[in-house]
Design a protein around this nucleic acid. Sequence first.
DNA 1: GCTCTGACTTTCTTGAAGGAAGTTATAAGC
DNA 2: GCTTATAACTTCCTTCAAGAAAGTCAGAGC
Lengths: 166, 166
Amino acid sequence: MPLRSDWSDDVCPIRRSLDVLGDPWVLVIVRDVLHGRGRFDSLRENLGISEAVLSRRLQGMVEAGLLVRVDYDNGGRTRQGYAATEAAAELLPVLQQLALWGERHTSMPAGGGHMAMIHRTCGNETTRGEACSACGEVLVPEDMTWVKPWKNTRDTLVPAGVLSGL
Amino acid sequence: MPLRSDWSDDVCPIRRSLDVLGDPWVLVIVRDVLHGRGRFDSLRENLGISEAVLSRRLQGMVEAGLLVRVDYDNGGRTRQGYAATEAAAELLPVLQQLALWGERHTSMPAGGGHMAMIHRTCGNETTRGEACSACGEVLVPEDMTWVKPWKNTRDTLVPAGVLSGL
DNA sequence: GCTCTGACTTTCTTGAAGGAAGTTATAAGC
DNA sequence: GCTTATAACTTCCTTCAAGAAAGTCAGAGC
């Protein structure tokens, strides 16, 4: 009698996906890691997640094949962080559709704003998550820039395996 | 200090979406309701969910604008069930992409099989979740049939507002 | 030797998940 | 008229994860 059911052996592929992804933290961690933000402290700070929960999630996501541990250099010291796998990079359409759905069907708080997803290959904003609404090309992280007006940032996504620091 | 964080007022649209959808039950309930399977008992039986949890989720999903209560006739008796809203119908791309991701990145158990998503408008199977890979049209529930070999069924999805019985 | 940083781990309390049993309301059967 | 059946919940109980805060550990720099 577990707190959450185990769907890893379900015949339905949606349930098997949700066995891994059906936790609110997992997808926002994937999002941050696809921004190159794969350091423990930077995840903790950006997500506002408890350290114990972050630690458990990261371990689970490595086991699930969403993340890999990578070394990086921090002022002469080798430290370890996390980078996306191909499996995580292929969640980009899901993340982008969640963003589109959220803008359509949830109410934006004060201080928010429209998050534009720019397909750098063609230079246009896309209104779809899987293939660019302007040029039709399938969207991959390394071709995307997300413009977040509430932070005044233009964030370029990174491909699988990359940890950009910060 | 709640068990789960409240992201309903977050500036990030992905987090606002996950505030509603970041629970493993919500998306499988949406899936079943988009199959017309919106009766309490039929959801309970098909999902293997505890009745208490199902009841809480359904209430929350009505409040969140994903479901509406609808009457239906059951042998001369009027009963109440649940049907999808437009907001829930627009989660179809997310569900289909989760299915595609699950088939690529999780291991199918014995007795499983490939779930084909057929776009009835053009008659072809689509390998994308948002727009048909064969004809390019944007996919909506009422044009889709899902072929589930492990159940020997071809399930036709229904548009928002419909409860087909069963 | 002490401090700082980054990545965790431990401890504690609260509350949701899941299982099971009980409740309500109507209709059909005897 | 009373019992049974069905559908949709609600209540009760135990277990276990979430979240908050504090502690641990290891190497670098002063």
